[in-house]
Design a protein around this nucleic acid. Structure first.
Length: 548
RNA sequence: GGCCCCAUGGUCAAGCGGUUAAGACGACGGCCUCUCACGCCGUAAUCAUGAGUUCGAUUCUCAUUGGGGUCACCA
């Protein structure tokens, strides 16, 4: 068969040559060892934790080596595309602070290696497909979906490998005349690769996380161009990552199965293979067994979930870093305030087995991340969150930022900061009593003492509270009240013989605490009272004395 | 079913031929303490199984088992 003629017949509109295209994508001039990575999502309008997990690797690898991290939109499947999908991707990356150096933007392209939307690159793929046809390495195939399904059934019965290969690759044997006739009859067709592979032979690959492996050669005549002339992932991946100069391809391990196809394609095209990093899947415990996190079943996989739950962005990132490089945790302990990006990220430390997503651990990481923030930072985060998810809290905070920040400053800073806040959702419960609107006292939390005595203590203290006293004077006053009620101020003494006293200083403090904060626990009462202000403290004490 | 990947406590994991098998989360107990949070101390809990290599295997090899992935004109 005259392959040149076939190529010309199939692609009459393609007049550029592969060489001309190659010339448009010169080698990048980067310093030695610089890595070029890419994030290549489909614009399905949905970004999940797994996307971020891989993207973090891409971003670190590139920016740690003074390389390039770019965004390429894989919009080859029109059916799955969602309007605004690209915008969602851009917004998520902006929010998570993972900046692209080049690639698709809302306005168009930023960079010299575009276009960065695959649909706009149709002519490029077709040029290379045309060349493959001319070399006899690709051919048109008219097999219908039904015929393919039948073939699959037959293969199942015969217990043979599924797919379009070898003797099953009927399109291989079509003559030029047959092809012409079918096309003229308007039959749709795809362009398939004529695989030179033999599954009995091995292809060798060294993965940056999985290590050395040998896989059977690919013998499937995979589809290169779909019937609409748009490439499949396999072909687009090879062409784009070659032209765009990607040095490291980071993707989920579900791609391992099709790696032989990609390697074969790179080899056939005479192009250098990129390095691959096949990351382990994020898993989840479901019933008794692990399973891959699914975006349909697991709401916590959607990034929106974290925004709503009020997990701060840096906490999500730190948690992901821990999963990615287990020594990150150790590093963080040694460098509590260091910029996350100064951590020496290393693919060698990446685990080759899938990690279970652990929400408890995430919350712990979040608690620690928040505890390291300044009150101002925390305030800004909460306000941003509350604006969308808790309008009442938002209004209260905005009404008096200085007051809110003073509240949030309690126990903040220093070597042992408080860690009350795990997510922004916790905030209302934690600081609510500082606001009259949210103050819902539960006097049933009062110690189990005679109500008359509780009332007496409340009134007694209300009459003498002095907001000018410092912390120690404040506590001395409370201790001094003890004997009057048969309480002891000495906890050790009390523990030795509880029956000797009507109560202790902790009981007395709790009575005051429940009255003032409405709960049995709170940060240091003395500080709380000062922030609340004398009037409000006394008002609450009296109010409680009436209701107990 | 074929092919591929993976395998240390409940979870994340260190380990890379000889260790009392780290650490973190979680659980439990205690200390500190006016409560809580923090912090500190401690307890329980792991090398899936079977062969082989070796003086010696958690570590290397091979099976088995288990888990996961993949076999589209989806990525």
């Amino acid at each position: 068969m005259d392959y040149q003629a076939l190529a010309a017949y199939l692609f009459p509109h393609i007049t550029t040559t592969p060489e001309e295209i190659e010339a448009r994508y010169p080698a990048r001039t980067l310093k030695e060892g610089a890595k070029v990575t890419r994030m290549a999502p489909s614009p399905t309008g949905f970004m999940h934790l797994g996307n971020l997990y891989g993207a973090l690797v891409d971003e670190r690898l590139a920016h740690q080596s003074d390389g390039v991290f770019y965004l390429r939109i894989e919009d080859t499947d029109q059916k799955r595309e969602v309007p605004g999908g690209v915008q969602t991707i851009l917004e998520v990356f902006k929010r998570f602070g993972l900046p692209f150096d080049e690639g698709a933007t809302l306005e168009g392209d930023n960079g010299q290696y575009g276009p960065y939307r695959q649909r706009q690159r149709a002519a490029i793929y077709q040029t290379f497909a045309k060349e493959l046809v001319a070399r006899g390495l690709a051919y048109p195939d008219f097999t219908t979906e039904e015929e393919l399904a039948e073939m699959h059934k037959l293969q199942e019965e015969r217990k043979e490998n599924f797919g379009y290969y070898g003797a099953y690759a009927v399109g291989r044997n079509l003559t030029f005349e047959e092809i012409q006739a079918k096309i003229e009859a308007g039959q749709p067709y795809v362009i398939r690769f004529r695989s030179p592979g033999d599954p009995a032979k091995k292809v060798y690959h060294t993965d940056l996380v999985k290590g050395k492996m040998e896989l059977p050669e690919n013998d499937q005549d995979v589809v290169l161009l779909k019937s609409d002339g748009i490439p499949t992932y396999h072909f687009a991946h090879v062409v784009d990552d070659h032209l765009m100069g990607t040095t490291h391809v980071v993707r989920g391990e579900e791609w391992l199965a099709t790696l032989p196809i990609h390697l074969q394609l790179f080899d056939t095209m005479g192009w250098k293979r990129p390095k691959y990093i096949h990351t382990a899947q994020l898993m989840k415990m479901d019933g008794g067994s692990k399973r891959k996190l699914s975006k349909r079943k697991d709401p916590e996989l959607a990034l929106d979930y974290y925004f709503e739950a009020g997990v701060p962005v840096p906490a999500v990132l730190e948690y992901l870093m821990i999963l990615l490089n287990s020594n990150f945790e150790e590093w963080r302990l040694a460098n509590p305030m260091a910029d996350r990006n100064s951590f020496p990220f290393n693919t060698k430390k990446m685990s080759s087995s899938g990690a279970l997503f652990d929400i408890d651990k995430l919350h712990d990481v979040s608690r620690n991340v928040i505890s390291r923030m300044s009150a101002d930072e925390v305030y800004d985060y909460i306000v941003t969150w509350a604006k969308d998810f808790d309008p009442e809290l938002f209004a209260a905070l905005e009404a008096d930022p200085a007051y809110a920040k003073a509240i949030l400053s309690i126990g903040r800073g220093g070597k042992k900061p408080r860690k009350d806040i795990g997510t922004w959702k916790d905030v209302r419960g934690y600081i609510g009593f500082f606001y009259d609107d949210f103050f819902t006292p539960d006097y049933s939390k009062m110690p189990d003492k005679d109500p008359a005595q509780i009332r007496a203590i409340l009134e007694d203290y209300a009459a003498q509270y002095d907001d000018t006293e410092d912390a120690s004077a404040w506590f001395e006053r409370i201790k001094a009240m003890c004997p009057k009620y048969g309480y002891t101020a000495n906890m050790k003494e009390y523990k030795q013989d509880p029956t000797a006293f009507a109560g202790n200083v902790a009981d007395l403090s709790t009575i005051l605490r429940v009255a003032v904060t409405g709960r049995e626990n709170s940060p240091e009462l003395e500080v709380v009272m000062k922030l609340l202000g004398k009037d409000r403290v006394i008002k609450r004490l009296i109010e409680a004395s009436k209701l107990v």
